[in-house]
Amino acid sequence: MLRVKEGDLDKLGLLFERYKRPLFGFFYGMTKDAELCEDLVQNVFFRILKYRYLFRGEGDFKTWMFHIARNVNHDHFRKNKWKLKESLENWEERLGTDENRATEFQQDEEMQLLSMAMERLPEDKREILMLSKFQDKKYKEIGEIIGCSEGAVKVKVFRALQELKEVYRELEKHL
């Protein structure tokens, strides 16, 4: 990234190739809308390019990138608050038909249920779990992204997983 900052823009291509999938996955975990995810990933790289001079090189690039990704996600949902309610309603409908989901990604039943449970979590809890997944459980780095201590991140992850467990069990009863 330091090379990109110094003007070697071709190096951003390497970073894009390395991180487009985890970034897409992060947004997919948050939105479940593949088309929108591509827009959001593009937006993250646009910001990286535009604000490359702000990268100090003190920390990990991935941490800086997810910090931007988080802001992009928040900005998107702030701008589209009115649409969010509608899309959530659509999700609820979609969640009702298991067949749709089964054919969508051909996941096994357990994973499908987990995916449904994830969607029912509040945004902040879904976000912390996605960060934990894509930051490989590096809680210190996650703390840098969301602005809290490592210990506080662990508690947040614990609470999110606790709730996920409850939602999961609730969904299990209805199957």
């Binding site: 487009k20 997919y28 459980k137």
Partner: peptide, 24 residues
């Protein structure tokens, strides 16, 4: 947490690559 970590998500399409390299 392990299950969440192993969740698989779809991959981005070639459109994303096209748009990114156009921007670059």
């Amino acid at each position: 947490e392990g299950q969440v970590a192993s969740m698989e998500f779809p991959s981005p399409t070639g459109n994303l690559d096209d748009r990114f390299y156009q921007m670059l």
